[in-house]
């Protein structure tokens, strides 16, 4: 009879949810000066600076050629993350909905999207659906990324909402609030704090996955590198710089997420 006389402990509990598909999050415990994160980050950053200095041709030329692509990469990433958050919130709420139809719809969306590789989704939206509606390649790229990551975000929202103790909803309802008010005023504000780190992880994963859009000829970082290589045949040099720049960014943001996680741990709220 679990519902009756629930024994529980008073006081605050910090809830952690871990949803990770392998983004690089530095381990807090790894405090040594030569932590893996430091070696990788400063190594990559050092190379990005040193290579152009020591060997301006071709590295400086490559570095000059890439900024457009970096901007495009961030544009795709930021717009996609924005829409995936909106889709994720709706999906997450759908996944906990007591309305069977809405619940099933949200769950099917998550299952289907998570079962199809992002690259295939991208092909599908741009090439397959291109037969019926000719989407701009940027639009198609952002649409594919948003729809795909929306499903993952939905799971983060769902897990976040469900990690809030049941008593919070009960207290809100007992005070006369509607379920919607309880979600809006009590549950979601608490959820936001918990899901910030996993959302940060998704942001990093999306930043990396955004390189896929280069195959529908969006001139992102990877595509620019390829364009440079195609004219100069300096594949090794071009892709080395591309890889290093991705690495610098993802490591930088993963550190940011780790710091954010730590701060949230320390402030009780």
């Amino acid at each position: 009879m679990a519902q009756v006389d629930q024994a529980g402990k008073p006081g605050p509990t910090t809830t952690h949810i871990t949803i990770s598909d392998g983004a690089l999050i530095p381990d807090k415990g790894e405090g040594s000066f030569f932590s893996a994160w430091r070696i990788s980050f400063f190594g990559a950053l050092g190379l990005v600076v040193l290579l152009p200095v020591l060997s301006p041709d071709p590295y400086l030329n490559i570095l000059r050629f890439l900024p457009d692509g970096i901007l495009r990469t961030f544009q795709v990433t930021l717009i996609s993350i924005f829409f995936s958050l909106i889709i994720g919130l709706i999906t997450g709420l759908g996944r906990i909905s007591r309305n069977v139809f809405i619940n099933r719809l949200a769950t099917v969306y998550v299952e289907v999207i998570r079962g199809i590789p992002l690259l295939v989704q991208l092909f599908y939206i741009y090439f397959a659906l291109g037969r019926f509606l000719s989407l701009d390649r940027m639009v198609a790229a952002i649409l594919a990324m948003s729809v795909c990551y929306g499903a993952y975000m939905g799971e983060i929202f769902r897990a976040g909402i469900q990690s809030i103790p049941k008593g919070q909803m009960e207290a809100a309802l007992a005070l006369g609030m509607s379920r919607r008010q309880a979600l809006q005023l009590v549950i979601l504000p608490q959820t936001m704090k918990i899901i910030l780190p996993p959302i940060g992880n998704e942001f990093i994963a999306l930043l990396k996955d955004s390189s896929l859009v280069s195959i529908v000829a969006v001139s992102d970082l990877l595509r620019r590198g390829r364009e440079y290589a195609a004219t100069t045949f300096q594949y090794f040099e071009a892709y080395t710089m591309v890889a290093l720049i991705y690495l610098v960014f993802t490591l930088f943001f993963s550190k940011l997420v780790a710091l954010m996680e730590e701060r949230l741990d320390h402030s009780g709220r």
Binding site: K9, G167, E170, L173, A174, L175, G176, Q190, G268, R269
Partner: peptide
């Protein structure tokens, strides 16, 4: 429910 106050074992204050 507006007219029925409830106090819980675990307080359930909004943190």
């Amino acid at each position: 429910r507006e007219e029925v106050g409830m106090v819980f074992q675990n307080f359930n204050l909004f943190p």
